[in-house]
C-alpha cells in the first residue's frame, strides 16, 4: 500500500465481511443438508401437539438433530413459552 493510499483509505475491509457472512450461511446450510428429510414434518407435528396446550408460534420452536459420532445422535428440542402462563 502506498503512502497516498494510506491517507486515502478509510474504507472498511469488505473481505472480512464476506468471510463472516459465508461462515454463517455455510454452517447453516450444512446443518440443514445433514439433517434427515423427516425433520421439518417432525417439527410441524411437535408444534401441533404443544399448541393443544399452549399457544405458540412456529418461530418459538426449534428442532435440530446433532450427530455426535457414529453411534449417537441427539435430537434437540427448544421451545420458548410465552410469559403469561395459562
Amino acid at each position: 500500500m502506498s503512502l497516498l493510499d494510506y491517507f486515502r483509505s478509510s474504507k472498511k475491509n469488505t473481505a472480512n465481511t464476506a468471510k463472516e457472512r459465508l461462515q454463517i450461511i455455510v454452517a447453516h446450510e450444512r446443518r440443514k443438508r445433514n439433517s434427515p428429510d423427516y425433520l421439518p414434518q417432525l417439527e410441524r407435528d411437535i408444534l401441533e401437539v404443544i399448541r393443544k396446550y399452549v399457544d405458540i408460534s412456529p418461530e418459538q420452536i426449534a428442532v435440530s438433530l446433532e450427530k455426535r459420532d457414529d453411534e449417537l445422535s441427539v435430537l434437540e428440542l427448544n421451545v420458548t413459552f410465552p410469559d403469561d402462563k395459562r
Binding site: 500500500m1 474504507k11 472498511k12 475491509n13 469488505t14 473481505a15 472480512n16 464476506a18 468471510k19 459465508l22
Partner: peptide, 10 residues
C-alpha cells in the same frame, strides 16, 4: 492485500 477479496486461507 487491500482487504477487498477473500484470501486463499479464507
Amino acid at each position: 492485500e487491500k482487504g477487498e477479496m477473500l484470501s486463499v486461507d479464507d
